[in-house]
Structures are given as C-alpha cells and as structure tokens.
Simulated scan of single mutants.
Amino acid sequence: MDEKKTGLQRLREPFPEHQISLLPKPLKRDAPKGKCQECGGYHGLPAIHLSYVGHAALTDRLLECDESWSWEPVAFGPDGLPLLDRDGGMWIRLTVCGVTRLGYGDAQGKTGPDAMKERIGDALRNAAMRFGAALDLWHKGELHKDEEPESKPAPSGLDNEIADLQIAMREAESIEDLERISAPIKDLPISDEQRLALSVAYSKRKRELKTAA
C-alpha cells in the first residue's frame, strides 16, 4: 500500500471528479439561453465548458497540506486595502509549507464585494497552480507522457464545438466580440491542424472588421 503523500506532494495530487466543476463560456455574448445538457446549468448556448476547482475544494486541499498556509496581497493602496492594477486584477503571495509563490486574479470586469471574492479565489487558484495544484486542468492535456505524437487528434465531441467556434467568429460584429469568442481556444485539447484552422478564421474576421471600421 502506497504511503499517503503529504505537504507539497499532496498539493500536486489530482482532484477527485466530484470536486471539479464546469465553467460555461458562451460562444456569443447574445447567445440564446437554454438548459445545458453538459453541465445542467441555464446559460447561453452553444458554449465551451472549462474544468476548474472551486475555492472551497482548493482551500480544503491547502489545509491538508499545511494548516498554517497563508496568502497576502503583493501591494497595498493608501487606504490600507489590497492594491488592484489598472486592469482590476490583484497580485498575491501564497505561502504553503514555508514556500511562497506569486499568483494573479481578476473578476472579469465585475464590481462590488462579490467581485473581490472572485478576484481572491481566482488569485489563489492561479498561485496554487504554481505549486502544481490542478495543473492537469490548466494544461488540458497529458503533462507526463513518454512519447507525444506531433499532432494529437481532438477527443470525440469537440468537432461540433470547433465548428460552432468558426461560425461564431465569422459572425462576430466587433473585434472585442471576436476576442471574447476566441478566448477559450487556448484551453481546448485540439490538434495542430484544428488550432491552425481556428487561427485562420480568427485572422480573416479580424481583418474584415478592421477594414469595415
């Protein structure tokens, strides 16, 4: 029987399925809302779903590794509160088992108390990733494999999402809309050929929007 890992080793252990949530990213800002068959939520469709570990699950893992773990903002403003950068994000220092690493979090343009909570949670996940926490979810692939093929085929079920992305990019009405639609592409586990096709669609639509401006 393997000895249970502790400390920073435990932080790198994969999270169980029941602690992994899905974050829907509608392909269009004005996408019609409906009941999602993948996550069960009610949001704009079609959408890409990104896997992530929530604040509570991450906090539980940090406590397992080090009951005295802590975090602090990198800088404070004149009012004594955590300093936000010009984009509304916040840099933090996360310390676990005596090791400190940086992290960055933002609230996706939100404001108010809930925005700060989201900003903190995002920063903690980002900093914990520097320790290896949920790294497999950030990577969206297999990190440790002896032999990697030059080009990976996309997992089944992604073909429709890729097609929806191409259509959404062609219908984008502004560069801002195009950037938002294409944001999930970097997280998709797709082949080089498919990524190139999406890149071509993105570049073509961006040129068209610039010309029409």
Rank of each mutant, 00 (worst) to 15 (best):
K28L: 09
G88R: 02
L62S: 04
L94H: 02
P46K: 01
A31W: 00
A56M: 10
C39A: 12
L58Q: 04
G40H: 13
P16G: 10
W69S: 06
W91F: 12
L81V: 07
D87V: 06
F76C: 06
P78R: 15
A31G: 10
L84A: 10
M90G: 04
S21I: 01
L94R: 03
E64L: 15
G54D: 15
H18F: 11
G88A: 12
G44P: 02
G77R: 09
S51A: 15
K33Y: 03
G105N: 06
G105F: 03
L102K: 02
K33M: 04
G103H: 01
A47P: 02
P73G: 09
W91A: 11
P82G: 05
H43L: 03
R101M: 11
L22H: 02
L50C: 08
L83Y: 11
L23C: 03
K28R: 15
G88M: 13
R61H: 10
L94M: 05
H18I: 04
K33I: 00
E64D: 15
G98A: 14
D66E: 08
K33G: 03
L23F: 13
C36S: 13
L84C: 09
G41A: 11
F15H: 02
I20A: 12
T95Q: 12
E72V: 08
P16S: 12
L63Y: 15
L81D: 11
W71D: 04
A47K: 00
S68G: 11
C65F: 11
V96M: 07
W71N: 04
G44Y: 04
L22V: 00
I92R: 07
K35F: 03
L22P: 00
G77I: 02
V74Q: 12
I20G: 05
D66P: 07
L62Q: 02
S68F: 14
L27G: 03
E38R: 07
L63R: 12
E17V: 06
Q37C: 04
I48P: 00
L45A: 05
L102Y: 01
L50I: 06
D30N: 10
H55G: 06
P26W: 01
G41R: 01
Q19G: 03
G44S: 12
D79K: 13
W69Y: 14
G77M: 09
W91I: 03
G80N: 09
W71E: 05
Y52D: 01
D66R: 06
G44M: 08
P16Q: 11
I48W: 01
K35P: 04
P14C: 07
A31Q: 01
G88D: 08
H49K: 00
L58R: 01
D87P: 02
G41H: 02
K25H: 14
K33A: 07
W69A: 10
P24Q: 07
A56T: 13
M90S: 09
I92W: 05
V53N: 08
Y52K: 07
D30F: 01
G98L: 09
C39F: 00
L81A: 12
S51V: 00
Y42R: 14
G98P: 06
M90H: 06
A57Y: 07
E64G: 08
D87L: 13
L102E: 08
C36V: 00
C39K: 00
G34V: 01
W71G: 06
L27S: 02
Y52H: 14
D30L: 03
C97D: 12
S70P: 06
G80L: 09
H49P: 00
S51K: 13
D87A: 14
P26R: 00
V74P: 01
C97G: 12
P82D: 05
A56W: 09
S68N: 15
E67L: 14
G105D: 02
E17W: 11
